[in-house]
Design a protein around this nucleic acid. Structure first.
Lengths: 222, 222, 222, 222
DNA sequence: AATGAATGAGGTTTCATTCAT
DNA sequence: CATGAATGAAACCTCATTCAT
């Protein structure tokens, strides 16, 4: 009911691919704790339901692709930052975390959803190739991290990133589980999730690297 | 197709309550990445579908009750251990983790599922009371932890437990996401999840407590 | 959970019969467009669900019994009035109508419901005996009516009552169908149902009796 | 198990719309005191259950649409007759009544059912728009009636139609309530419902219009 | 390539009634 | 007589996916 233009060139196809993901993103953004159905995604993209299936083999793979785009964005930024000469601080990491996880209200809900998907709803081949790509990016970033933190022995950069991600996801889930309540008195201050996350990450990083890491405000050091 | 034995006394009812949860547990155990429907649970419990609704107001609340039982078991063990005079080591914690999280293959799948439930499918009142109970147990355990680790300032015991749980859940999700694959090449050695988990928890704890913690094997101490 | 006293004497049983009907009446009164389920009725009566079935063979027969009580009350009043020497006016009839149909918010909803029941949900024997009793009362009242209105030929008293009842029920259903709307613009002034009913009944009666009937206020006439 | 023919054009869709209503009509015809479930309707229409929901938002709205079709047919005939120059007699009205209410054994059961629906099971918006359409048709017919019966003051045409409909519905319900019995001894001769209806309507009309109306058989008269 | 009509499996919940206690 | 636990048939609606056009 909208585009009604055929994507003949490979380029056009890529573009339509993106358009569908964009639509899904917008819907997720609009209501993060609901998963839109295919009809809504198609509608939002200005396409027909069937068309979505020309570009994605299933709804789950669509979600996975969107998730991958999120992760890619994050890795792009992370690797970009690690490539700079300026020493990386924990605060740099926190800033990246904030930008890509907290301020993107779609990242964590989708990631959570995707964790549940992979095991069952996605054909092993797809899951595997997704993981391979992720592993590659993780390696790259992990290596970069090791360059900035000499205390990290080989392989520990990757591990640290992995654990950080796990911690972020886990804490988010615990806090989001009762975001609807006013007070969230169950020990997890839902309203102060960012602060809690920062503290938790700091502990993890200091415990991994083995020494205190400079605090943001105290940056000037001396 | 039934037990045909009536739960008349309150005691019997408790028992049947348990029996239904047991049935759900068995089904979850049998296929951890699938959520059984109420008919299956009833069948497994040797009851009629309607009977399940006599004991639980909805499917989601049933799942939540099962999750709470898991968590309660864990807290019982944790608090029990913390009540002993013998100093708690990280290895004690790891042992508990192993017993309750890793060797109970239903804990983490269900926990993951429950995080997604609370926000939408459970009436706020139920969610709230659940959280309150959890918070209480968490407080108790957190306080116990602080007695064993004097470095932990007030409130940090709770925080450490929370972060540990988040880390466990997060790592599990990342590793389970490709448990079906043979190799799990995405950077998270699925097959060696326990070791990875131990290392991650150690880092988190050392970073939080601020000093190295004795290793299991190195027990001789001096 | 309440009465817990056995009805041994026939008298007691009658009483309990009444108690159940009273409970149903109260519930219907409380929410006239809902039909309570048996559990609610039992609860309201302070009895157990099973006990209700000792007194009524089915839910539908319970409703029918309640309806019959309503109708009986009406006939009692009607026959009582017709037995007086003072000439019956249309206004007398309207007063009875008001008292028993309009001011008893349970009469018409239940009557409507019962019309739908008889054909299917009630065993023919029950339906038949109910109808016989109703017919008898109707005859009695019809005869009384004929005494007051000599224009009514034999049998026309009954017919007039029947038609009146039909008109009342029909109009009520049409007006109640959109009682929820503010304005009810569909030609049936929902808010002025009593006035509409009075006018309709007057027309029916005058058409049946064949002459204008005195109006309330203008009663003295001369 | 399907028609497997797609309704692509708007015209086709209208047709399928009709086909579903037809199927519901047939089922209602077959057993007028039962309300078919959606699966049956779909089956009867040669469609899948889901397809029905493509054309009607809910079961209740489907029933309402069917009812509206009945009413529309009646109004079409009525307005058509009123538009003719030839004076309308009560017998004309009775003929219409017979054709549309009595000989259509689905009209009255469905109407009865719909009265109960509107208040609760249909979204207010739908109910409201339905009523508006009905009101419009009623106005039109009422005005036509007033042209034929000069005794009817403005607004009384609508009122007469409304009361007639109420009387028809009410009498039908009272007589149908024991249609299953052989004799129907409760004062309402079920077997002679048409005659009773005719007499009742005559009374209502004469009482409303204020003068005797010619009788069918006596037509020659002069 | 694009469409969107059609499918139909799948799941939750209600509640009248029975019957063991 | 009284209880209320257990039953299980109904019924609704959603939505991922297919495929005729």
């Amino acid at each position: 009911m909208a585009i009604r233009q055929r994507a003949v060139l490979a380029e056009d196809k890529q573009e339509r691919h993106h358009a569908i993901l964009d639509a899904a993103e917008r819907l997720l953004h609009r209501s993060p704790d609901r998963v839109a159905n295919v009809a809504e995604v198609a509608d939002e993209a200005g396409l027909a339901k069937g068309t979505v299936y020309l570009y994605f083999p299933s709804k789950e793979e669509l979600l996975l692709a969107l998730h991958e785009r999120h992760v890619d964005d994050f890795f792009d930024a992370l690797v970009g930052r690690l490539a700079l000469r300026a020493p990386v601080t924990l605060d740099d990491m926190m800033a990246l975390t904030r930008t890509h996880f907290l301020e993107q209200p779609t990242f964590l809900p989708l990631a959570t959803r995707c964790f549940g998907i992979m095991a069952t709803a996605v054909p092993p081949a797809s899951a595997s190739s997704f993981h391979q790509r992720m592993a590659q990016r993780l390696q790259e970033a992990g290596a970069g991290l090791e360059r900035h933190f000499p205390e990290l022995r080989p392989g520990h950069g990757v591990a640290l990133l992995r654990r950080s991600f796990a911690l972020i996801v886990g804490l988010w889930q615990m806090s989001s589980a009762h975001a609807s309540e006013e007070a969230g008195p169950c020990g997890l201050p839902a309203d102060d999730f960012p602060a809690e996350l920062a503290a938790a990450l700091r502990a993890l990083w200091e415990g991994t690297i083995g020494r205190p890491l400079r605090v943001a405000a105290a940056a000037p050091e001396a």
